[in-house]
Every structure is written in C-alpha cells, then in structure tokens.
Amino acid sequence: MTSFTVQLLMNSMITGSVYALVAIGFALTYNIGGFFNMAHGAVFLLGAYGGYVALHVLQFGLPLAVLVSAAAAGLAGIVAHSAVFRRLALSEAPSTVFFISSLGILIAVEGTVATGFGYETIVFMPGPSPSSTFFGARVTDIQVYILALSFALLLALVVFFHMTNIGKQIRAVADDRELAKAVGISVNGVMFWVFVLGSMLAGVAGLFVGMEHTIRPGSGMVAVLWAMVASIMGGVGSFIGPVVGAFLLGFIENLAVTVFPSEWKATVVFSILILFFFLRPVGLFGVRR
C-alpha cells in the first residue's frame, strides 16, 4: 500500500468519523420523527462556537471544551424539542411543518451566532499542529485525538443502544413507531432522548470540525447537508447505515479533492448521491418499508 493510499484512507477515516457523529443524530431523528431535521445544523453550530468560547475565551483545556460543546448542543437540543418539536408532535402536525420549523431554527441560530461572532471564518487551532508519521501518512496530534474520541463515542453509543432501557426503546421506536405507541412506549419521551444524544454528538463534531478546519455561521447548513448525504447513502432506517455512509462520504470527499480541484468536492459528492437514488434508493443498509 503506497503512502498516498494510507494518507487517503487515514484522512477518510478522520473525516468520516466526524461526519458519523453528526449523521447518527440526524438519521435517528428521521427514523423516529419522520422528518429531515435541519435544526441539527443549529446544534452543530452551537457546539462548535461553545467549544470555541471554552478554548479561547475561558481558556479551558481540550477535554473540558469537548464537554462544553456537548452540553451547549445538548441543551439546545432539549430547548428545540421542548419548545417546538414536542408541541408539533402533540398537535399531530405534518412532516413538512416539522421540516420548515427546523429550517427556521437553523436560520435563526445562524443569525444569532453571526450577530455575536461575526460572519468571518474562525480558526480554532492557528499554527501548525505537532504530527507523526504512520505507515508513510502524516497525522497530526489533533487528528489522532479526534479519531480516538469519535470512535470511543461511537462505541459508547452502540453499548448505550444495546445495554440501556432508553437505548432499547429508541431502537424499538425506530423499528416500528406505531407498534411502540400501541404497547405503551412513550414516543415523545424517546424523541427527547434522541434530541439530547444526537445534539450532543453533533456539538462535539462541531468542535472537531473547528479544530481540524474552520467554522463560520454557515457551517451548520453544510454539516446538516453532509449528514443528510451520509444518511441517504448508508440508508436511513438502520443504525449502522449512517455510520457506514459517513465513512463512505469521507472517502469520496477526500478522493475527489485529490482528483479534481477542491471546488468540485460538493459536485462530486452530490453526483454520487444522485447515482444512489437511481441504483440503491434505500441506501447501503436501508430497509424498504
């Protein structure tokens, strides 16, 4: 294996692991709530800027910044669920109303963040990061940290889904929402936990993107679009699908920038997404319902 291939795979793993953190919450909300939750981009953004404040204003270390990101995004998820989505669910609003409301939340949060921090791009980690070489591939310490913590969080999530009551209820509601209601599982209660967990993971991903790249108020929309692509490629309706889709997306994106100019990255990704719609509309692990 050439050092180019190792570098490509390593970069894909790092990108994919961050996308997976965002995609899981997005796909879960879709599975259980039945709508594309654009507000997932808002919690990503709040997690990112929360992490920035923790690192650069409060001068916290990285572990504490991760907790601040998760807490800020989780709290935003609770507020979004309690103030908007729970009420919409109780009034049995159609999925388009959920979607438009979530888009409204994203736009409002983007505007609020821009008012506080400005529209300019923020660099979390200015200057070169210490790095090491792994089978010919250069990996920065920040990337190792991101990769390790992302995998730890994904593993913790698997344990949570299989070992806890609420995890099993989330799987049950994702399997069959109507049966879950019929047997007395509180779908709204499950939705609350999906918002909390999904938002916390997205918030941490926001911090990671800021550490690895840059953040600006428009990053929330980009993150939710990428989560949507990963979920569709991997297959909504399954738990493994969005994760695999995220790593596939990471690979396609990193391969695309080595072959085409970087401006073409989104074009390549969305072209492949459209191919998926034709060839495998339910995604790699999706279930036809």
């Binding site: 009551n165 609420i166 099993k168 209820q169 799987r171 049950a172 994702a174 399997d175 069959d176 049966l179 879950a180 047997v183 007395g184 599982i185 738990f239």
Partner: peptide
C-alpha cells in the same frame, strides 16, 4: 420489533 431480540421484545415492556 424486528431489530430487537426476542428477549428484548419482551423486556421492553418492563422498563
């Protein structure tokens, strides 16, 4: 619930 095991299908009622 198809993705839950038989045991989990029964246990889910007793949360």
């Amino acid at each position: 619930f198809p993705s839950l095991t038989v045991y989990e299908n029964l246990e889910i009622m007793l949360y």
